[in-house]
């Protein structure tokens, strides 16, 4: 009888190694740097390349949202997103992430942004090349370590999809402990069997890095998208400063 027993995973890198091991793959030399200075997301160093990890694309519900958006891209009307995170994530990184999600789900590049920034809060209206609207409400003022509170809803001509069940005010956790010593529950978020021990977010980071290492996600595409997202971020800031809409042409603004 087969016996499986895994130790708890404690780092994203160990998670990637675990996945490679389970799939009988060679473990290459790699490093994952958690959002280094000057970057807007974590960086995978592999084969001499610095590859931005757009790991949120592999979050289970986000993947479902993407699939929904790709059913009939020209029928996508709008993506409305709310995302609130702890102060440990800069607002710029959050804008970067949500713009990527918008393009990923709506299957079309953002061509116009009208943004309003106020400290660590940002509201943004945009249009994609396909004519869909994106609306973002973002904030990065919660306590460091708070479980991100997000809500994405795509509205299409054939229906809607959301990663936050309607009526749920805050992000769900998988397990809640109601102990007899504290009236407030303790929530647990475990995302993946092989990565037990990592949070949902870190499990997703590991799964995404694993996919890049295997070549299932093209590293050069990620590098190009990073460049595009930086241009979009520049457009967001320019729009907020000048109080007008900014049109994005090509990679530039």
């Amino acid at each position: 009888m087969l016996q499986f027993k895994y130790d708890k995973v404690t780092t994203v890198e160990d998670g990637v190694k675990r996945l490679l091991t389970v799939r009988d793959r060679e473990i290459p030399e790699f490093e994952i740097i958690k959002r280094p200075e000057g970057e807007y997301t974590d960086i995978l160093v592999l084969d001499g390349k610095r590859i931005p990890l757009l790991w949120w694309r592999y979050e289970a519900r986000m993947n479902s949202m993407k699939n929904y958006g790709r059913k009939a891209p020209l029928e996508n009307c709008a993506l409305n997103s709310k995302s609130f995170v702890g102060k440990d994530e800069p607002i710029d990184a959050l804008i970067y992430r949500e713009l990527d999600i918008s393009e990923y789900v709506l299957v079309s590049p953002v061509k116009k942004v009208t943004a309003f920034l106020n400290g660590d809060a940002c509201n943004l209206l945009g249009k994609t090349e396909s004519g869909a609207m994106l609306g973002l409400e973002l904030g990065a003022t919660m306590a460091p370590g708070t479980i991100p509170q997000f809500d994405h809803r795509i509205i299409t001509k054939h229906g809607m999809a959301t990663d936050r069940t309607v009526n749920n005010v805050v992000e769900q956790s998988g397990v809640y402990l109601f102990a007899d010593s504290d009236p407030r529950p303790v929530a647990f978020d475990d995302g993946e069997y092989y990565l037990y021990g990592l949070s949902v977010e870190d499990s997703t980071r590991a799964a995404f890095a694993f996919a890049v290492i295997l070549g299932n996600v093209n590293a050069d595409d990620l590098i190009a998208q990073d460049k595009h997202l930086r241009a979009l971020l520049g457009a967001v800031k320019a729009s907020s400063e000048c109080g007008k809409s900014v049109i994005i042409e090509g990679e530039g603004v």
């Binding site: 009208t114 209206l125 004519g131 609207m133």
Partner: peptide, 11 residues
């Protein structure tokens, strides 16, 4: 003070 609005395609 300031107002900006966009409409999306109808479904």
């Amino acid at each position: 003070d300031t107002v900006y609005a966009e409409a999306a395609p109808n479904f």
